[in-house]
């Protein structure tokens, strides 16, 4: 337990004393702000057309749904930008240790691989969660000038955090495979994109394979969260995805022993 906290503290400290975390968080928030602005302007334009049409043709029309148009798209885009951001946060986690030789310090210390993996995972996840948490300001603006439904917003945040946890786990796995950070980014980005596009690919498969591909589609499990539904099935999907990736990381680190590498 103590080893876990030591690694967690060290990683978080390392993120916060290097410019990487600040630059990535800033880029992320600027992009999200930009997209948020566009979504709101778009909603505005919709409203204008919609009501002028209604006035011209008369009759009662149902109100436009702020959640469907702004909130759902916002979180969809947030997940997509995370896909680019997280690999850059995770790339150094193991690759750098191997390059610097500090990996030798960790492996010859009386702490388990599990403790280092979880420590690194938690630090990166906390950073991600903190950055995503700052987008609450935008939701606050929405609340100040409109009447969004907070239920789906809360469940979307939960969904986005679960999605982020899976991304971080894949990133750590990729980082454990190499001592080159660029290679780590390439692997994790490629793997994430593959899972991202799995739903699309499943349309061209049939039978059992299609079922598997549909299940593995990492964004299809987000749909319910966007609508305000927290389904245990989806929560379990992201949790098991995360744990399986972290487990594979442990296997990779252990394999060094029987592979007889230097």
């Amino acid at each position: 337990m103590r080893g876990f906290f030591a690694v967690f503290k060290k990683e978080l400290h390392s993120y916060l004393t290097s410019p990487i975390a600040y630059v990535l968080a800033a880029v992320f928030l600027v992009l999200m702000g930009f997209l948020f602005r566009n979504l709101v302007m778009q909603f505005n334009a919709f409203c204008l057309t919609y009501f002028s049409q209604a006035a011209r043709f008369g009759g009662q029309l149902p109100e436009l749904n702020l959640n469907r148009i702004v909130v759902e798209s916002f979180f969809g885009l947030l997940g997509f930008i995370s896909l680019f951001m997280i690999p850059m946060l995770t790339m150094r986690l193991y690759a750098e240790e191997k390059k610097l030789g500090t990996f030798e310090l960790l492996t010859t210390s009386p702490i388990s691989n599990l403790q280092t993996i979880l420590g690194k995972f938690s630090a990166c996840f906390v950073l991600y969660a903190g950055t995503v948490g700052l987008t609450l300001v935008m939701m606050g603006l929405l609340d100040a000038y409109g009447e969004p439904d907070w239920g789906p917003i809360v469940s979307s945040y939960l969904g986005v955090l679960l999605l982020g946890a899976s991304f971080v786990a894949i990133g750590i796995l990729a980082s454990s495979l190499t001592e080159n950070q660029i290679v780590a980014v390439a692997i994790s980005f490629g793997a994430l994109l593959l899972f991202w596009l799995m739903g699309w690919a499943s349309q061209f498969a049939s039978g059992g394979l299609r079922k598997v591909m549909e299940y593995l589609s990492i964004i299809d499990h987000m749909e319910d969260f966007y609508k305000g539904v927290i389904d245990t099935k989806d929560v379990l999907f992201y949790l098991s995805f995360t744990f399986f990736s972290l487990f594979l990381t442990a296997v990779v680190l252990e394999s060094r022993k029987w592979r007889g590498v230097r």
Binding site: S18, L100, E104
Partner: peptide, 17 residues
């Protein structure tokens, strides 16, 4: 590992600490 102190050939140091 608890009983051993080890200095590898390249000292394992974190430059940002």
């Amino acid at each position: 590992k608890r009983r051993v102190g080890y200095l590898p050939e390249h000292p394992p140091l974190y430059n940002d600490m």
